[in-house]
């Protein structure tokens, strides 16, 4: 029906995927440079595992943030929700005796429910109360972290069941792939499919692109946005559970910049802060560019603080390019 010359079709495809492609190339180049400079240290199985494991928890949160940002929203609360979910999960696992798979199961459900609860609150504040997402999630960030500290008195809780730590936290599938990585990959794969191929993803992008058009066409915009924030919260709760497994502690003070790291990853990955354009694979790349840079700098003996400088500059450049692209196509 649309018989197009192959050349022009390929060209258009290339344009459409270009930003993701550039990023993938950039990431591959980073990996290539570090591997060439320090093949032993950087390319070792141990180091690869370290990078992947280190990034997996952030990746779970960043996947949730991808959906939120795709609707032109923002969620600053993810790190705090992670901590809160971990804290209540430990409390519940304690109540179930502090060990055994029963306790772990209860903790898992609790972490997911707590995360989902905060996400729903975010969604209700944004859609019903019409509080701008930036402020609504800034507020719930404070509340979630504050409540976690109220519950714990400000001191990290240990007492994570050993079963959880030795399996999910430190175990590996087939003795090679850490379970944390497996979990993150599973979440990412399902989310990538959902965003690109399902009605849920299509609504997410449509609302981000033009919520008024979606509303006029009968899409229940508020309900969908509520679901998206709930999903982001749910994934933050899941990340909280993974964090417990990994560190055997609630790590209350360790997640102050998770929200910004997640947003950085999403935006680096080519998802537009203005909504409507988003890919999960881009977010994966966006998570790993800072992670690889950090790891590589440490191995090369470059002061790791330079990683922050580099990422800050790249982030600004990425958004600038997005702006240029938008301006260019408005001039038709």
């Amino acid at each position: 029906m649309t018989a197009l010359p192959l050349a022009s079709r390929v060209q258009l495809r290339r344009l459409a995927v270009s930003s993701t492609l550039y990023l993938a190339v950039a990431l591959a180049a980073l990996i290539g440079v570090f591997t060439a400079l320090e093949p032993e240290a950087f390319g070792s199985a141990y180091n690869v595992r370290t990078v992947l494991t280190g990034a997996s928890i952030l990746l779970v949160m960043a996947v949730g943030a991808t959906f939120v940002i795709a609707t032109a929203g923002i969620d600053l609360s993810v790190g705090a929700v992670l901590v809160f979910s971990g804290v209540v999960a430990v409390k519940v696992m304690d109540a179930f005796g502090g060990s055994g798979w029963g306790a772990v199961g209860a903790g898992f459900v609790t972490a997911l429910a707590a995360g989902c609860g905060w996400g729903l609150l975010n969604g209700l504040l944004v859609t019903r109360a019409r509080v701008p997402a930036l402020i609504a999630t800034l507020g719930t960030m404070g509340m979630a972290l504050g409540l976690a500290q109220v519950i714990t008195g400000g001191n990290d809780l240990g007492g994570v069941p050993g079963e959880l730590v030795t399996t999910v936290g430190q175990g590996r599938l087939f003795g090679t792939v850490p379970w944390l990585v497996v979990a993150a990959v599973a979440v990412t794969a399902v989310a990538a499919f959902a965003l690109a191929k399902t009605r849920f993803g299509r609504y997410t992008l449509t609302i981000g692109s033009n919520h008024e058009a979606a509303r006029r066409s009968g899409v229940r915009v508020d309900r969908h946005v509520l679901k998206v924030y709930a999903l982001a919260g749910l994934l933050a709760g899941f990340a909280g559970f993974l964090s417990l497994a990994r560190f055997a502690s609630t790590t209350i003070a360790g997640h102050g910049t998770d929200n910004l790291q997640a947003i950085t990853a999403v935006v680096l990955g080519g998802t537009s802060l203005f909504g409507g354009v988003a890919t999960v694979i881009g977010t994966v790349i966006g998570v790993f560019i800072p992670a690889v840079l950090q790891n590589g700098f440490v191995i090369l003996g470059v002061k790791p603080f330079w990683q922050q400088v580099a990422i800050g500059a790249v982030l600004v450049a990425a958004v600038y390019l997005d702006q240029l692209r938008r301006r260019a196509r408005q001039q038709h």
Binding site: R199, L205, T206, A213, A214, S217, V219, G276
Partner: peptide
């Protein structure tokens, strides 16, 4: 509509089927 009510980031096909997506 005068503002067309199109989602600019989506394809024409996606726009045709907003709220009526075929599964």
């Amino acid at each position: 509509y005068q503002d067309l009510a199109l989602a600019p980031d989506l394809s024409p096909a996606a726009n045709f089927f907003i709220g009526r997506e075929l599964l």
